[in-house]
């Protein structure tokens, strides 16, 4: 199973329940705004504690209220592309990209064929941006940096929160093509939150609709 989720969590004023088990590598989460999509991603990333239940991604338990498992965010290694990007304003694009690159004694074991800095920069066309500060980037550029930063942290799974939001159609198409190339290149499970049916159909193997 890529995803085995049975979670109760709070999103805004409401309690939500999510149950899905699927071998699909890419899971789309759809639903109107306020349906608790981002809150679900936060629960998977370890930034928000679910009320109850369990979650396993890629057959690794990251949360299990019954068994007392609740990995901290740095132990889950989610490659989280936030809707608001959250690039570090005091670091250049290059240092943003390098922030999560594993290194040092406690680095986790890595798949050998993971794309390196050069390949990610090429796939996302980041070359010209490397020495700039986040404040000087356009929305589309910042989005690509955020995706690159998440990929380079060699995540165990990806969380993509509306990766095409607020991009004009031409940029959205280009970014979409890059995401397709990236998720085809790295073979980790991915959760894609999206409004766009076309995007969901093109990428996802399973859909989790939230009401």
């Amino acid at each position: 199973m890529s995803f085995d989720l049975a979670l109760t969590y709070r999103a805004g004023e409401r309690e939500r329940e999510v149950t899905i088990a699927t071998p699909a590598r890419i899971l789309a989460v759809t639903g109107p705004s306020g349906a608790g999509k981002t809150s679900l991603l936060d629960c998977l990333a370890g930034l928000r504690r679910p009320l109850a239940g369990r979650a396993a991604i890629g057959s690794r338990a990251i949360f299990d209220a019954g068994a007392g498992i609740d990995l901290p965010p740095e132990g889950r290694r989610a490659g989280y592309v936030f809707q608001d990007m959250r690039l570090f304003p005091h670091l250049t694009v290059r240092r943003n990209l390098a922030y999560g690159v594993p290194g040092g004694r406690r680095a986790p074991a890595l798949p050998a064929d993971w794309p390196g800095f050069g390949e990610v920069a090429r796939l996302l066309d980041l070359g010209p941006l490397l020495d700039r500060r986040p404040a000087t980037l356009s929305g589309g550029e910042a989005r690509r940096v955020a995706i690159g930063r998440a990929i380079l942290s060699r995540p165990a799974f990806l969380l993509l929160d509306e990766p095409l939001a607020s991009l004009d159609p031409a940029r959205a198409e280009r970014t979409m093509a890059m995401i397709e190339r990236i998720v085809a290149r790295v073979t980790v499970p991915a959760v894609l939150v999206s409004h766009e049916e076309r995007e969901v159909e093109r990428l996802a193997g399973a859909v989790l609709p939230l009401a």
Partner: peptide, 27 residues
């Protein structure tokens, strides 16, 4: 200092201490 930046650092593998040292402290 935006706490969402600290959260982002944690998802990128930074411990509480590293997130503090590299994000909260310089900002």
């Amino acid at each position: 200092v935006d706490r969402r930046l600290v959260a982002a650092a944690r998802t990128l593998g930074a411990s509480r201490w590293r997130a503090f040292r590299t994000i909260t402290l310089p900002l």
